[in-house]
Simulated scan of single mutants.
Amino acid sequence: MLAMTDKSADTLLQNFRNKVTRNMVWAGAVTLLALTVTQLWLAHYLQAAVMFTSGIVFAAIAYTFRAQRIPNYWRLLFMVLLTAICAMSIKQNGVIGVYWAYPLLVSSFFMFRDGYAIALATTITVATSAAAIAFMELDDAWRITASLTVILVLGSVFVVMLGRMQRLLHQLVITDTLTGLQNRQRLTGVLNELLASFKRYNRSASLLMLDLDHFKLLNDKHGHLFGDQMLKQLANRLKQRLRVNDQLFRVGGEEFLVVLPETDLAEAKKVAQKLLSTVSDEPFEGKDAQVHLTVSIGVAQLRLEQSWAEWINSADTALLEAKRKGRNQVCVAEGYTEI
């Protein structure tokens, strides 16, 4: 009944960010190694040595973390070395050396996020401007400082706006638009965290798979808009009866999943019975009619040998059994015992 992908939206977004960062480090390595030849030809041996060493370091970082996130301290080292090389270039080449400051400044906004990116970009702007003032004519130095400051301000605005947009898009991706509940995009990460906690600390956890009974008949009789009203009311009722740490997801048309951290099978059954009564005891008020609704619930406690997919399947199977037995009841996954 419930199909899910192995990768959540969070994971896909993080993988994309990691790939961008890694490619930037690779690009830095290739560029510096190529420029080493130019510096040797110009007899700038110290700068050539620094560029060559930095290029090798960058290549090693990119290769070492080719399949994972580059830690922040290596990213910071990447930016510090590039800033130092830029300052050396300004000292050695004057205005020509300043050209490297602009892509360096822009890179800082991609290497880090939000306030960290702005802080790093500010540091680069100050360091580069100081080098320009120290090694160049004042008329040129203040123009360079002004242009870098403009880029810093515009980049900071971009970072702030992009951060807000990403958070908004992330919220839209993981939220069901009808009920306001979390959707299946967020579920994978939550279940994996519970699996890790169970394996490491032996903290129990349970799932409730819940399905609204005869929902198709409800839609056929009253219309889909009426059905949507009932789903929203159902979501609100369920949320009101759940505990603070419990999490509620809408994972299908009329199907919901309740995640119960640190909850064994006996306690999970009690929660399921409360939810069953919450739905059936009071009628639901629609715009044009009042209806009585019921739900069927499958309960499954996490077992050591299970993956999250097998855990969900256990709860799903129990739900099917509850429906087979006549609906409006709770069934426990087969093979579980209350302890």
Rank of each mutant, 00 (worst) to 15 (best):
P283E: 12
D139P: 04
L138A: 04
M88N: 10
L231D: 01
V159Q: 15
S156F: 12
F158L: 12
R69K: 07
F284M: 10
A29R: 13
V259A: 04
L257K: 05
A130L: 14
K239C: 00
R237F: 10
R203W: 01
F78S: 00
Q240R: 13
R327E: 05
E254S: 12
R113H: 13
L191C: 14
Q229L: 07
T123R: 02
A62I: 04
I56W: 08
Y336N: 12
S204I: 11
V80E: 00
F158K: 13
H44R: 08
F215D: 13
A9F: 09
D288C: 05
E321P: 03
Q329E: 04
D264C: 08
Q171Y: 07
L187N: 05
Q14V: 09
Q39D: 15
N93T: 11
R75D: 03
T278S: 15
L154F: 15
L319A: 11
V259F: 02
L82D: 08
G97W: 09
K287P: 09
T122S: 11
A121Q: 11
F16T: 14
I124M: 10
I85F: 00
G115L: 06
L194A: 11
Y102G: 05
L187E: 02
G115W: 09
E254V: 06
L76S: 01
G180D: 03
K287W: 06
S307T: 14
L2C: 03
L76N: 09
T175I: 02
T123E: 07
L275Q: 05
L320V: 00
D316Q: 07
L276K: 13
A9V: 08
G335W: 10
A333E: 08
W142V: 13
A43D: 15
V299H: 01
A134Y: 06
M230T: 03
G155F: 09
E137V: 07
V126G: 05
V57F: 11
D114E: 05
A3M: 06
M1K: 10
A289H: 12
C331P: 01
R164T: 14
G163R: 13
S107L: 01
A146I: 12
Q92G: 08
S8H: 08
A9T: 06
L178I: 11
I133P: 01
A117T: 06
L120F: 05
T38V: 13
S107N: 12
K232A: 11
T337N: 09
V295H: 06
V106M: 13
A29S: 15
A43S: 15
L2K: 11
W41F: 14
Q329W: 02
T122P: 02
M4Q: 13
E282T: 14
D246V: 10
L212N: 10
A235M: 03
L12S: 08
R327I: 00
A333I: 09
V279L: 09
Q233N: 08
A268D: 12
Y73K: 09
A130Q: 05
K323S: 05
L33S: 09
N192L: 10
E305K: 13
F65P: 06
A84C: 00
Y63G: 00
